[in-house]
C-alpha cells in the first residue's frame, strides 16, 4: 500500500508514492537514482548513508521515506554551492588533502563534516574526530579526513572574511 510523499531534494521537488517500509536511503538511491548516498551497514553505525534533512545530518538508513514527507533533503549530489559543478570547500578539501581512497564513505563523511562546520566553524582536531565518530572509513585511517576538514574550515573562514 503506497503512501504519497512530497519532498524537496537538492532544491528539486519530487512527488512519489512509496511503500511505508522503504528507507529514505533506498528512496534516494532506487527511486530518485541519487546513488551518491551509500549503504554500508544495517545498524546505523557507519554513516555512509548520511544526508541532511531540514538542515540536520541524519542517517538515511534509519529513517523511512514517509517520515521525510514535506522535508527538504540535501545529499552529496547537492553539495555544489552554485549547483553548477563548483566544488564546496569540503569537496575541495577532500581532494587536496587526499581525504578519500575508495570513496565509499566520502559522501557521508562530507555531509557529517558540513554539519560540524555549520555549528563550529573553527573545530579543533579532537572536535573534528568527535564529530565524525559516526562515520566509518576503512581506507584512510582518518588522518587525511581530519586534514581535509581542517582545509575546508580554513577556506570557509577566509570566504566569510572576504564576504
Amino acid at each position: 500500500m503506497g503512501v504519497t510523499i512530497q519532498v524537496k531534494v537538492n532544491g528539486k521537488p519530487y512527488t512519489s508514492e512509496v511503500e511505508p517500509r522503504q528507507l529514505l536511503t533506498h528512496y534516494l538511491r532506487d527511486t530518485l537514482r541519487l546513488t551518491g548516498t551509500h549503504v554500508g551497514c544495517d545498524t546505523s553505525s557507519c554513516g555512509a548513508c548520511m544526508v541532511h534533512v531540514d538542515g540536520e545530518a541524519i542517517k538515511s538508513c534509519t529513517m523511512l521515506a514517509v517520515q521525510a514527507d514535506g522535508c527538504d533533503i540535501k545529499t552529496i549530489e547537492g553539495m555544489s554551492p552554485d549547483g553548477n559543478g563548483t566544488l564546496h570547500p569540503l569537496q575541495e578539501g577532500f581532494k587536496e588533502e587526499h581525504g578519500l581512497q575508495c570513496g565509499f564513505c566520502t559522501p557521508g563523511m562530507i555531509m557529517a563534516a558540513e554539519a560540524l562546520l555549520k555549528e563550529n566553524p573553527n573545530p579543533s582536531e579532537a572536535e573534528i574526530r568527535h564529530a565524525i565518530e559516526g562515520n566509518f572509513c576503512r581506507c584512510t585511517g582518518y588522518h587525511n579526513i581530519v586534514k581535509s576538514i581542517q582545509y575546508a574550515a580554513e577556506k570557509m573562514k577566509k570566504e566569510v572574511q572576504h564576504g
Binding site: G36, T75, I76, M79, L87, H98, L100
Partner: peptide, 16 residues
C-alpha cells in the same frame, strides 16, 4: 599529484 579519480567520488558520481 592530486588524484584524478576524486571528482566522481566527492560529487556522489562514483559508480559502484
Amino acid at each position: 599529484v592530486k588524484r584524478v579519480e576524486d571528482k566522481r567520488f566527492i560529487t556522489g558520481k562514483g559508480k559502484y
